[in-house]
Design a protein around this nucleic acid. Structure first.
Lengths: 146, 146
DNA sequence: CAGGAATTGTTCGTGTACTAACAGAAGTTG
DNA sequence: CAACTTCTGTTAGTACACGAACAATTCCTG
């Protein structure tokens, strides 16, 4: 019973806690992204990518698909619209909804950035051997839930 | 050559990218933390915990130890000072430095929160079997770098 | 010792991220 | 159909997080 990872016993070192390491891993990824794709934030790219995948979506639906709450997705879409990458119009069937779709420019940018996005994913996983990366992604997916 | 995880070929699905899943995993952890320790943010707790571990530190040094840049740690420390959890004074040897130490109240709060902090780490890892969690933490550490 | 370089901390601006509160529209049920 | 509930989007407030620019201090090197 010397297990330091026990939930109620043993020492607590910040550097060994999942949350802390998760935050650092995320930081490293964000830094790689900012270096390779300086013109778009990871969040903005996620929204654009998902919208291109789906073709269209309501604002909140896109938020759910990209794990952003209503307040967050609004700011992200505002910025993408300001840059002409996303078009918005009131939904005809449902007056509450904002119907979103990527503009031509948005689709072109997405296509142009795809290789670099793949690169970023590879670079992020670079410290792991290929099989390790596969295992890691499976476990990480479990951890993320939903 | 059908490997979708190839860095330059194959399809790109946002939902399969490390960065995206990393962000969701982090979100889940933050939610657990906010639920179990509503009085302190994860970042504030990290700063307080590290300062209690070290006993004392300069502001920037504490920032490095907790993976926060100078601008970020400043805000965090300001809030902890305002709540009387951290004491600050100008360093005698180096006039640039702000010497930080936890107050008695800060140490007591840290001690009181420790069990819940351990709980949060356990809950975060709960979707994984014990051996899976161990493997995951090793790989995650590699990914975080430094 | 003098002058350039590095370190420490601060401020500003931008961009997530979440809570809470709100208004308007749509759906549900008695 | 009317009341209730849910869903959609918006706003305001707080808190990370980082780049860039800056002043003061200390360090280093010629």
């Amino acid at each position: 019973m010397n297990d330091n990872s026990d939930a109620t016993t043993g020492s607590y070192r910040l550097d060994d806690q999942v949350g802390f390491i998760l935050r650092r891993a995320n930081q490293r990824h964000l830094a790689l992204f900012a270096r390779d794709i300086p013109d778009l934030t990871p969040t903005q790219f996620a929204a654009l990518a998902k919208l291109c995948e789906l073709g269209q979506a309501s604002q909140n639906a896109l938020g759910r698909a990209t794990a952003m709450d209503a307040a967050t997705i609004k700011g992200v879409i505002d910025r993408l619209r300001k840059r002409g990458l996303v078009a918005a119009r009131r939904d005809a069937d449902d007056a509450r909804r904002v119907h979103l779709s990527p503009t031509d420019q948005g689709q072109q940018l997405y296509a142009a950035l795809l290789p670099r996005a793949r690169e970023i994913s590879a670079e992020t996983l670079a410290p792991l051997a290929p099989q390790e990366a596969a295992v890691f992604l499976q476990l990480l997916e479990k951890l993320a839930g939903e």
